[in-house]
Design a binder for these strands. Structure first.
Lengths: 133, 133
DNA sequence: CCGTATCCTTAGCGATACTG
DNA sequence: CAGTATCGCTAAGGATACGG
């Protein structure tokens, strides 16, 4: 029995590792698309704009490995493969959407902060430069 | 006036960009530590195990740029710099914790799925190999 | 104490070409 | 259609050394 009330390093590692999946370039977008219902490979490829065939494959494999999507092969000709969110995948989608909502709600504030920071940085630079002038 | 009810690509980009901050290797850990209260540079360095000085600097700069933390310099000798979560940073922390809780709650299921997937992959391999034998 | 600058290694990703 | 294989680039990150 593992003591779940104390904060073991192992937990941090695992959490970080799982978080990094959310942070990678494509996983979230794929999961969001699959949230609309099962999709075929090339269907996803069209929906997730900009993704390469290679990265779609790798992303789907990763999600499948973690038990977030299922992969169903219909041995027809031409072949047809359906990807679909598992219950686990659905629950992740919900949590991730919360983060997405946060991002949308605070997007303006963040962008404003960035502009302020960048301008301040520039003017610090400019100060030195104009001291010389 | 931007139509906020339709799903413009720009929004996706911004959301993805902000999500990538959560996914990067150190930001979340730093934010979590700062959730305990203001911290000094080397204090954070000790708390966030494994982070290099360089990456702590870069991470803090990024967070500061996005308006998630404030940086306060006390021009004493030796110098002292305090980092502290802004309101925006606190609200991010809350949302991120939800994701962290999800990760903890589903960690066993994910790890189990991974083992299954990996073993299945191996046995597919093994099938070919033992066919030859 | 709090950084910055430099070098170097790896991991992520895209482009392209090929296969069942 | 749904992939795999290979190559090459670039961005992220670690180690180390130096500076205010």
């Amino acid at each position: 029995m593992s003591p779940s009330h104390i904060h073991v390093p192992t937990d941090c590692r695992t959490v970080t590792e799982i978080l990094s999946r959310v942070g990678d370039k494509w996983s979230v977008q794929v999961v969001v698309q699959l949230g609309e219902g099962p999709k075929r490979f090339n269907e996803l490829r069209r929906l997730v704009t900009g993704i390469s065939q290679r990265m779609l494959t790798l992303t789907l494999r990763g999600l499948e490995r973690d038990g977030l999507v299922t992969r169903t092969v219909y041995p027809t000709i031409p072949p047809r493969v359906d990807y679909q969110l598992t219950d686990l995948g659905c629950s992740l989608l919900k949590t991730v959407r919360a983060l997405g909502d946060w991002a949308i709600q605070n997007r303006d504030e963040i962008l404003a902060a960035r502009r302020r920071f960048d301008e301040a940085g520039v003017s610090d630079f400019e100060r030195e430069r104009s001291d010389a002038a």
